[in-house]
Design a binder for these strands. Structure first.
Lengths: 205, 205
DNA sequence: GGCTGTCGAACGACCGTTCGTTCGCCACCT
DNA sequence: AGGTGGCGAACGAACGGTCGTTCGACAGCC
């Protein structure tokens, strides 16, 4: 029996020829540096040493390239986050791990993460909506850890779940703005320090 | 005795004709919605009901318009922040007030704040540097509050000043991304909840 | 000999900016 | 009061260039 038709979201992202992959990486880098609208097909072509028109042997449109970068970025965060959420450990430990994973992911793929955060709003309505779903799913994961922690009596029962989740995400999502590769602190140390602050707070005990 | 020549930074930002001000507001709105590179002079002109070329009776260039929006945004944050830093009150109170002021400013001028945060990187080197100085000054203000709190024994002596400051800024700077006018919570409530979390932490005492 | 990948020319649209011109308004002069 | 000259604001055409995209031709490889 022939295999069932794959769901759209499970389709291989594209025929992964080496050239095509190179184009994806160049797009991530250029879009992150110059922005989507600030990057022309000429810039892309120059980066690969090609003519503008030749790019269309590999892609359907510039927009498709943006979606690919953004969507891959979203998937990476989701995948690593899921692992942290499903750990068998106290909420504090899982929160710590999620922050570490988040920042590791952001730094490992700094270009894609920057595009994911800054340029996704330039996608057309329908594609933007499909990214929004993944964003919501991710935020829900953070919320569930906080909720678990409160239920277990580890976190303060009067803590505001939504705001705690937003604080976690903002810490992670703002890191790309100041992090520069080669600094003294690695992703793990950065994630741990943020988690420490979030969990224990500034005030003396 | 004639008044001393004004310092450059004190000069009125531009001849503030009503039309010119209107153009500034339209630029803030369009740049925040479509991005700097995604906004054409045609978009601007349409917003005012003018021809593309007529805009140049009021401005020198599109870039000048971007700088104006970004620079005014920076000044607003600095001004309100300074007031909080110089309060005669414990560090925790001043931190709370700075966060509230920050979020009030961001929400009151949501367009300009969005442009300030997202589009400043498209300024040419020299103008970008002059904004960077203001950003650094602002971050230093936050750091000084945390340092004071530690010295006074209110904040934990092992708190990481840089990371605490970054957490405060990221909370404030990420708000524009999810805040939508008309929600149930005002800027004051939002700032207070973030401050509460930052100061007391998630963990039970 | 077909398939893949590239070239390079061309498409129409739009880019930011310049410019000569017009037009209404207001201060000033007689 | 009536004339006049200057001025700010806007028009609309035009500038050279770039935009994203299409396409026929062709080279090299399996």
């Amino acid at each position: 029996m022939a295999p069932v038709a794959e769901k759209l979201t499970d389709l291989p992202r594209s025929a992964p020829s080496p050239r095509r992959a190179e184009l994806g990486r160049a797009a991530a880098r250029l879009f992150s540096e110059r922005g989507y609208h600030g990057t022309s097909m000429q810039h892309l072509a120059d980066a690969l040493g090609l003519q503008r028109g030749s790019l269309y042997a590999h892609i359907g449109s510039k927009q498709e390239l943006l979606f690919e970068v953004v969507d891959e970025g979203a998937d990476r965060f989701l995948e690593r986050g899921r692992a942290a959420v499903h750990m068998a450990a106290p909420a504090a430990t899982r929160l710590r791990q999620l922050l570490i994973s988040h920042i590791e992911t952001a730094i490992e793929h700094l270009d894609a993460a920057t595009v994911f955060l800054n340029e996704w709003r330039y996608l057309p309505e329908d594609l933007r909506a499909s990214i929004q779903i993944k964003r919501d799913r991710y935020e829900e994961m953070v919320r569930s850890i906080v909720t678990d922690g409160i239920a277990a009596g580890d976190f303060r029962s009067d803590a505001d779940v939504s705001f705690a989740a937003r604080l976690v995400l903002s810490a992670g999502n703002w890191t790309y703005a100041w992090y520069r590769p080669g600094g003294e602190l690695g992703p793990k140390e950065i994630g741990e320090r943020f988690a420490e602050l979030l969990i224990r707070g500034l005030e003396v005990a």
